[in-house]
Design a protein around this nucleic acid. Structure first.
Lengths: 335, 335
DNA sequence: ATGAAAGCGCTAACAC
DNA sequence: GTGTTAGCGCTTTCAT
């Protein structure tokens, strides 16, 4: 085989045309004559020519790269969103540069770094704890958030978090629960706040009581779910139904209770949020609110591409629907 | 702020030096005089200059990109390896291009595509089912496998899979189990094969019997674990202890049994492989074999960088140790 | 419909 | 120790 890689020059020489024609054949085939087009394609075939993305990008003043900023690569929750992103970005010839905001020192500064570095044609934000002011950079590339944020002007893909919380509360209330508690996500995270707010609103809409001690602080992790179980056990008056802001916490919560000899749902009903794969494999199956994570990624990527290409967007925000999944971890309260 | 981005020319003009000196200041600071170096750094500061990676890469005939090929981005098992890879690659100024081998039609062809496309300075393979012949491409970039493979000549990071299986079997045998079964990973996957082989060898070394029907075929997924539970239930003579080739399958297995009213470990002892986070949050906690996944990623990335930079490697293969984690899903067999 | 030619921003010989 | 210069491979006016 050839020792060196073929360049556009080689193709041009073999096809007996100029490099400009080869370039056109690849980018705007309709403007070259059929016969020359075929000659060029033949030459490409015989040389095994592949366009050099670096040179192309340099000339076109773009990078061909999208930066994805997320709080934690190792969190499986994000991997499905990544899969959705990749399914759109890869065919569009964009590479994904994945960066972990929590690994470095100051996440906000990292965001600013990427926005000014010129290393990317666009940025996708999956970290809801970054400060909106970090986006105040003139001439920055387009940004799409695939998470809720204080800021409502930046393009974003959002999930019906408040409605999800209301579905969870409604479900428990319909089963007969009157004492319903909540385990939150991390403070300062907008997902946490929105779900907590949705939880509170749903309770008061139903005329159900809410005690402060029934709101237990978590951070989405399994460990914090296990800790919430211990907190719940220590309560004087325990809610009979619990809505947890993530399935991971629900897993930790149920596991801890079961290891202490309690039973779900006889002792307490549990509802999670996310519908991670394991939810239906647990015993009891975990009742939860499904978020279509792949779809979140797909839509975010599509919005970003549209922003990069045209600078335009149909609507600034897209809302993704959630779906309630009733399983066996919730039942009528003990009497 | 400036409308346009500063280039090396702007810096050179302001610092009163040539572009070459600016470039040197950044790449080999030791060769420029202290005073000029400071002037250049000042100019960089005031202009907010950031090196244009695309131009630099074009000139240096590299891409600054490493391609990571994995079977399934959405699988949490890989996300921790990715985190390990990123922790090495990002500081070294390499971007990770993540590609899913299972999304397209022919995985082998995809690998070949990336190898010839010149889109990357190196490739990291996390898919053990790709055919070794796909690597037979002259002039291809360096490849490191972070998974076992038939081929032992390609640089790779491996895990002591056979030893892990032996640890699992030894543990069950020590508890008194004499009828031990296995749920495999997908056929054709080297991880599966190696663990199955390790399982068989350990049994015969201990003089324990192995019936064909005690080896149940799985594919690493929770669903296949649940299916294995049904298969186990249907056996005439059931093994009292089971080693499953992945924790995900163990989760599916235990969940299915529990939903059918059986109890682990009273009815059957379960040992998994991986030590995914949930293992210790289950009830009962899952006995398993830990693989240090972040470390796998770190070492693979280090090996690849060394290969890219120097073309050399200390040893062609690095073996990563596994660690046995005894929890509550395994106990003495029912008598 | 096609070609000639001018760079995109940077680095690395090679001079001095 | 520093400057000059020639491209890396491609796209895109501007002519023809």
């Amino acid at each position: 085989m050839d020792r060196k890689v073929a360049t556009i020059q080689d193709v041009a020489r073999i096809a007996g045309v100029s490099t400009a024609t080869v370039s056109r054949t690849l980018s705007k085939p309709s403007v070259v004559a059929r016969s020359t087009r075929e000659a060029v394609l033949d030459a490409i075939e015989t040389t095994g020519y592949r366009i050099n993305a670096t040179a192309s990008n340099l000339r076109r003043q773009r990078t061909g790269t999208v930066i994805v900023l997320l709080p934690d690569i190792a969190n499986p929750f994000f991997s499905q969103i990544l899969a959705g992103l990749a399914s759109v970005l890869t065919p569009a010839q964009y590479g994904m540069l994945i960066a972990d905001t929590q690994s470095g020192p100051d996440p906000d500064e990292q965001l600013a770094h990427y926005l000014t570095s010129g290393q990317a044609d666009g940025v996708i934000l999956l970290d809801g704890t970054l400060s909106p002011r970090a986006l105040d950079i003139p001439g920055r590339p387009p940004v799409v958030m695939a998470c809720e944020w204080m800021d409502t002007t930046t393009p974003s893909v959002r999930v019906e978090n408040a409605r999800g919380a209301a579905l969870a509360v409604g479900h428990l209330a319909r089963l007969g629960h009157r004492h319903i508690g909540h385990v939150t996500g991390p403070t300062g995270n907008v997902l946490s706040e929105t779900r907590l707010e949705g939880f509170r609103d749903a309770l008061s809409a139903l005329g159900l009581p809410l005690r402060d001690e029934w709101v237990i602080e978590g951070d989405f992790s399994m460990d914090s779910g296990a800790a919430a179980a211990r907190a719940w056990l220590a309560l004087d008056s325990r809610p009979t139904g619990l809505f947890l802001s993530s399935d991971q916490m629900a897993v930790g919560f149920m596991g801890e209770l079961q290891r202490r000899g309690l039973t779900v749902p006889s002792d307490v009903s549990v509802v999670g949020f996310d519908n991670i794969e394991i939810a239906r494999h647990l015993s009891p199956g975990l009742t939860t609110v499904r978020q279509p994570r792949t779809r979140i990624g797909v839509r975010a990527a599509e919005m970003l591409l549209s922003l990069i290409d045209t600078g335009l967007l149909e609507g600034p925000t897209e809302m993704i629907e959630v779906e309630f999944m009733a399983r066996e971890s919730s039942a009528a309260p003990p009497r």
